[in-house]
């Protein structure tokens, strides 16, 4: 049974893209057992991926990585390789899960504060984990101030966020910026709670 399972996995692998290789073998096996493991905080780079029993072109015959005993396999068609909930999704689905948190700004400010830097540090880690992702940083403002001025303010915010990510080593060619000014409020309310949500650098994954 285990052998048959591995054979099917191998076959499945050959049909899939390199993206599938980015998955951690251990968690993949666990997922095929019907349980969703927690997503590891950091994934090893693709070159570190090993797969017990899998024979992949251009791969030295590494010794099998230590693998915990797979849980009992329920005799159903194996699920698609989806241990990493984000890796197999299209960009629309990824964006619905908001894997890159927004950065918020003070009134009329384009300064990324300490809290914003923490958010961006985490976002940078995600971008390192998914090195093929391309992103757009949207600069937004609240409804106060005039429409034309807020276009420029939104641009400054987007560029400030981009600049901080560049300082963390994220490649410039992965990042686009766009300002929407006050055209797309996230919260239509007319109070500070809403406004504080609308002054943001917002992340959209545009390619993977």
């Amino acid at each position: 049974m285990n052998q048959e399972f591995r054979t099917r996995m191998t076959h499945s692998l050959r049909l899939r893209t390199l993206l599938a290789l980015a998955l951690v073998g251990t968690t993949t096996l666990a997922a095929c057992g019907g349980k969703k493991p927690p997503v590891p905080a950091t994934a090893p780079p693709p070159s570190a991926v090993t797969f017990p029993g899998a024979t992949t072109p251009n791969r030295p015959p590494d010794p099998p990585a230590p693998v915990p005993e797979p849980p009992p396999v329920i005799p159903v068609e194996p699920a698609p390789i989806a241990s990493d909930p984000l890796a197999s999704l299209d960009t629309d689905e990824i964006n619905r899960q908001s894997p890159l948190a927004p950065v918020f700004f003070g009134l009329d400010s384009d300064t990324v504060d300490a809290e914003g830097q923490k958010v961006l540090d985490a976002n940078a880690a995600v971008l390192r984990k998914y090195p093929t992702w391309a992103i757009t940083i949207e600069g937004h403002s609240d409804e106060r101030g005039s429409a034309e001025y807020n276009l420029a303010l939104g641009e400054r915010r987007a560029l400030a966020v981009k600049g901080y990510l560049l300082s963390l080593g994220i490649a410039a060619d992965r990042i686009r910026t766009v300002s929407y000014g006050k055209e797309f409020p996230f919260d239509p309310g007319q109070n500070e709670t809403a406004w504080s949500k609308n002054r943001r650098g917002h992340f959209v994954v545009t390619g993977k």
Binding site: D92, N95, R96, S98, E183, F184, V204
Partner: peptide
Amino acid sequence: GGTIEERSIK
């Protein structure tokens, strides 16, 4: 279309 924000076009 596409994003979760359901933004109004102009």
